[in-house]
Computed example of a mutant assay.
Amino acid sequence: MKSILNFIIVFGVGILFATVADAAGFDCSKAGSADKKIVCGDSQLSRLDELFNQRYAAQKKAEPDEDNIHVARNFLADRRDCGDDRSCILSAYLAVLWNISPDKNDFMQGISARSLAGSQLPEATAIPAKAGRCATTSVLEVHPRLDNGGAADDADFDSGTGIDYANDGYQVSYDREEALIRSKPGDPVTMCLVEIDRDCSPDEGGKLFLVTNGRTGESWILPDAQHKCGG
Score class of each variant (00 low, 15 high):
G32M: 08
T136N: 15
E141H: 10
D154T: 11
A77M: 12
R198Y: 10
E178I: 11
D156R: 05
F107P: 01
N148M: 10
L97Q: 00
A23F: 02
A58E: 13
D84H: 06
R47F: 13
F209G: 01
I4A: 14
V96K: 01
S183R: 12
N148L: 12
K207I: 01
F7M: 12
N167G: 04
A18W: 10
C28W: 02
I89W: 03
R133Y: 09
H227V: 08
A155Q: 11
G149R: 04
C200P: 02
S101F: 03
P223D: 02
S43R: 12
G132H: 03
N53V: 07
E63F: 14
K60V: 06
T190G: 01
C82W: 01
E141Y: 10
D85S: 11
Q226G: 10
D203C: 08
S43H: 09
K2P: 00
Q226Y: 07
G230I: 06
D187Y: 10
N53Y: 05
K130E: 14
T190H: 07
G231D: 12
K2V: 12
I15C: 10
H143L: 14
A21Y: 04
P202G: 09
F157H: 05
P144K: 04
F209A: 06
F107W: 02
I127G: 00
P122M: 13
F75T: 02
L210I: 05
D22W: 13
D65E: 10
R73Q: 13
D49N: 15
I196M: 12
S183E: 14
S101Q: 08
T19E: 09
Q226F: 05
I221F: 08
I69Q: 15
F75Y: 14
C192G: 09
K207L: 06
P223C: 00
Y170T: 02
V139Q: 01
T190S: 09
T137I: 04
D156T: 05
R133T: 15
S112E: 11
Q59C: 00
D147N: 15
P223M: 03
D224P: 03
S101H: 06
L210K: 06
D224W: 05
D197S: 14
L45P: 05
M1F: 13
E204F: 01
Q120G: 03
R86T: 00
S3A: 14
Q59Y: 04
E218C: 08
C134L: 10
F157D: 00
E178F: 09
G205M: 07
A58F: 01
N53W: 05
S33G: 06
D147F: 11
D42R: 02
G160A: 01
